[in-house]
Amino acid sequence: MAVCVAVIGKDNSPLYIGGIGSDTGSDSELSRQWLVHTALDALEERLSSANSNNTAPNATTPRPDLRDLYLGLLYSTDMHKIYGFVTNTRIKFVLVTSSTSPSGSNIRDAEVRTALRRLHALYADAICNPFHLPGEQIISQKFDKQVKNLMLNNV
């Protein structure tokens, strides 16, 4: 079960942070935000190394879009595992699973990948809203509901 999903803009501003779990106190809210925030360290490191790898061998060819958007496990703590996903427009998705709960500890990589792809689709739907300004926080209730569903059901 995912405990937290975050959408982060290309300049690392949070666009959406959604969390579910038994405790909804401000403390766990804060720690969740910290988790997502610190995951950016690992994300950026991956992106910069991926970039240099791609451009180094033959700089003349355009960067191949074949790069996997799913970045896999970014890092894990005692309690959580944190996965990353980056769209072609540098929108970052972070998914946090709890390694203490039975469903979260045995999660397979493929499941996380699917969930993040679905999240990508949901995100694309949400920003298709003509009233949404790109770069603004996503306040769509529908999106929120769908993401929460995703966290509960799929993973």
């Binding site: 910290w34 925030h37 610190t38 950016l40 360290d41 690992a42 490191e45």
Partner: peptide, 9 residues
């Protein structure tokens, strides 16, 4: 080890 945000936390 290049983790400015971790450090900030």
């Amino acid at each position: 080890f290049h983790s400015p945000r971790m450090r900030k936390q």
